[in-house]
């Protein structure tokens, strides 16, 4: 016996735009690679060439190892100072750029824009300009890292300051505390842990960048890497790369341990 169930018609299937979007994206990508006159063949042969090139690096020559280690220490110090500069600048600017703390909306907008500008300027570009302004050496490198990452740290700190419960600021304001007192007593102590975490992350990143800043003459191990690669001394270059790798692994492990203990 047939059951006499009154089936409701299903609601209409929602329109699926994903294929159209995918086609559009593919078309744009194709147009871009056509504009840069690239082809798939180039890519495949490029990967083969890269394999050949990398195979030249398999005999590291550590005869100048102590020199490279010393340069690596200089690199880490450059990153340290860059981070310190960034941290100080960010500590000054971030309360001005936090919407809950800022003394005036105009100051808030202006500081945000300044931080944005610092973030937008790549540190390589800053290093290039600072090297031609104040001469070769690690000092322009530290400045460049400092200016660029101050933008990041300032943004991170100010976002943290905005997330602090408003009550803490209001409690201090109610006792007659000014902007600086509110920031120092309710602002920074509330976000100390997260601040330390972000600062370590930036330090980590700065060491990576500092190891290539030498390419533009801003001190550290990058300069040595550039010159060995320029003279096709692949064995020495591979020793340098191994030292950079080792340092980065140590720093990575250290900073992730510290960050885990902090949070």
């Amino acid at each position: 016996m047939a059951m006499n169930v009154d089936f409701q018609p299903l609601p209409r299937k929602p329109a699926n735009f994903i294929p159209i979007w995918l086609c559009a994206v593919c078309a744009i990508l194709y147009a871009m690679s056509w504009h840069l006159s690239l082809s798939f063949g180039d890519l495949v042969s490029g990967i083969g060439d890269t394999g050949d090139y990398i195979s030249q690096f398999f005999h590291p020559d550590f005869s100048l190892g102590h020199k490279y280690v010393w340069l690596m220490i200089e690199t880490v110090c450059t990153a340290l100072w860059g981070t310190a500069i960034a941290c100080i600048v960010a500590l000054v600017l971030s309360p001005l750029a936090a919407s809950t703390l800022t003394p005036h909306p105009l100051i808030y907008r202006a500081t945000r824009e300044v931080l944005n500008f610092m973030r937008a300027m790549p540190d390589m570009l800053l290093a290039l300009m600072l090297v031609s302004a104040i001469g070769l050496g690690p000092l322009p490198g530290a400045f460049a890292l400092g200016i660029h990452t101050a933008g990041f740290l300032g943004k991170f700190y100010s976002e943290l300051l905005e997330r602090v419960p408003r009550g803490r600021y209001e409690a201090l304001a109610a006792t007659g505390a000014g902007f600086v007192q509110t920031t120092m007593i309710a602002g920074y102590p509330s976000i100390l842990r997260e601040m330390a975490g972000y600062t370590f992350y930036i330090f980590d990143r700065n060491i990576r960048m500092a190891s290539v800043l030498g390419l533009v003459g801003a001190g550290g191990i990058g300069l040595e890497l550039e010159s060995t690669l320029g003279f096709f001394l692949y064995n020495k270059a591979s020793a340098i790369i191994i030292i950079i790798f080792a340092t980065l692994f140590v720093v990575d492990a250290l900073s992730s341990t510290i960050r885990r203990r902090l949070t």
Partner: peptide
């Protein structure tokens, strides 16, 4: 571990 620029040196070569 290494930034783009280092790899770019290798890929350019």
């Amino acid at each position: 571990a290494l930034p783009e620029l280092t790899w770019a040196v290798a890929f350019v070569a």
